[in-house]
Nucleic acid binder design. Structure first.
Ligand SMILES: NC(=O)c1ccc[n+]([C@@H]2O[C@H](COP(=O)([O-])OP(=O)(O)OC[C@H]3O[C@@H](n4cnc5c(N)ncnc54)[C@H](O)[C@@H]3O)[C@@H](O)[C@H]2O)c1
Ligand SMILES: NC(=O)c1ccc[n+]([C@@H]2O[C@H](COP(=O)([O-])OP(=O)(O)OC[C@H]3O[C@@H](n4cnc5c(N)ncnc54)[C@H](O)[C@@H]3O)[C@@H](O)[C@H]2O)c1
Lengths: 216, 216
DNA sequence: GCCGTTTTGTAACTTTTTTCACAAAAAAAA
DNA sequence: TTTTTTTTGTGAAAAAAGTTACAAAACGGC
């Protein structure tokens, strides 16, 4: 009944499924279809919706476009969400270059580095000195940060972010970050995800539930 | 009491914490310390260990090196785990280049592409034509695959992998993949992870539990 | 060798999450 | 119009996950 991480991840999945259904020309959808697309039970879908007051029609299911609009609103897509990245190495650069964020209403405004060879000032997405990060976040009112620096630098980067106004962080460094409660932190540890695959592959047991992303 | 995804993710975290403790010269560790490093309760740590028969000493805690060795064994680090990647775009290239896998006993042996401009044959990690993937997997006995292709290509790539002997997959495409029970699939959806951060940032409510990677 | 302290290992309990199951509404068929 | 079918919305039940709490073991000091 409460909204938790997994619930929101499921909403993202429902949303993705709805976008595809819409592109295929579907007008209505049943909880069954969404359940199937998201890999859950249909009662779960209806229950998730009931938390947010999303209702359908007895027998008629849900209208794809209405539902999609509501999910988008819940997921914060009613306005562009701006973010910055610290660390423009392998992962950071991959995220900066990814063009899929744009159509999800997520805009990465700038990257920040300590390695000057990675700097590049230009329209669109600049990569600037880490020293400029705090000021940039503050003057642009950015609330979302992505941490893609080596583990030993992550906590320090987080602190700069939080002190400058960042309220939510997606972290790729394989370390537990500590922050004040004013900032929520979601960490994605890709090595752990692979270790997970390896473990369940080895025991070849189907005790496995899909990660919820995913993500988690 | 059962081994689930989150439990294995926690083991990865304990392992990471132990590596750091070992490097700092620690010889013993208490469930409390690991709990703190992993962001969980100390009873959770002991319970996780009890599932795998990992025991410590009443009062003395756990020996760091023994525990680390056992966790490494459980997580499949007793031998090098080989993997292949399909799709060497932003994410695929970031993973191929990442040198942190090596010291975790994970070796990405090759990448596979449909875009010839991405091909590069050379010692170490080659990027080859997708057409060669099945044969490569088979002849090298690879069991782990990483999918980093666009969503519309992911299911098809998965099928080639599974038919060639892949038993576990880490998927980055934001779509639900379907496979026979012989292959486990763990999907990481980075957009959903960001949407999660955005959601919980907006409601500014601390109903939030950290992703289990964090996965998870 | 005894006593107080610390920390494990786990049984019992609590909380959270998921699934079941069914009345009620709506559409379609008769 | 009445009946049948379908699908929602939600309590109640079940299952899963996490926490509490404490006996038992082990260490250190005396
Ligand atoms: N690339 C992967 O596939 C992968 C996989 C698993 C985990 N990770 C984790 O993701 C993080 C980034 O990995 P990567 O492969 O991109 O590493 P990378 O070394 O390629 O990039 C890190 C970048 O951060 C920069 N940097 C270092 N300290 C900084 C600081 N204080 N402020 C700003 N920038 C700083 C470096 O100059 C570098 O460009 C690491 O914590 C790594 O463990 C990456
Ligand atoms: N890069 C990111 O930050 C990011 C974020 C979220 C999700 N994703 C997801 O990860 C996946 C990869 O993203 P990306 O940014 O690396 O995309 P990309 O377009 O940079 O790379 C995809 C690569 O796959 C190759 N490809 C296409 N079809 C193929 C096939 N059938 N077999 C082999 N290779 C094929 C393309 O040639 C391309 O090089 C996508 O599904 C994307 O939605 C990426």
């Amino acid at each position: 009944m409460t909204v938790n991480r997994r619930c929101i991840i499921r909403l993202s999945r429902y949303k993705n499924a709805l976008v595809r259904l819409k592109n295929l020309g579907f007008v209505k959808v049943f909880s069954d279809n969404l359940a199937d697309a998201a890999g859950v039970n249909s009662a779960q879908v209806r229950k998730d919706f009931s938390i947010f007051g999303l209702t359908g029609n007895k027998r008629g299911g849900y209208r794809v476009d209405e539902l999609l609009e509501e999910l988008n609103r819940i997921l914060g897509k009613d306005r562009v969400q701006e973010a910055v990245i610290a660390g423009v190495g392998n992962i950071g650069a991959a995220l900066l270059q990814y063009n899929g964020f744009e159509k999800e209403g997520i805009k990465i405004r700038a990257g920040f580095e300590i390695d000057p060879s990675k700097f590049r000032e230009r329209p669109g997405v600049s990569v600037l000195s880490l020293e400029k990060m705090g000021g940039y976040i503050r003057s642009n009112g950015i609330e979302i940060g992505i941490i893609a620096v080596p583990d030993f630098a992550a906590q320090q980067v987080l602190e700069i972010m939080v002190n400058s106004g960042i309220r939510g962080v997606l972290n790729f460094a394989p370390i537990r970050l500590r922050s004040s409660s004013s900032c929520i932190i979601n960490s994605v540890n890709l090595v752990a995800e692979l270790e997970n695959v390896i473990y369940f592959t080895r025991i070849a047991d189907k005790n496995f539930e899909d990660n919820e992303s995913q993500n988690t």
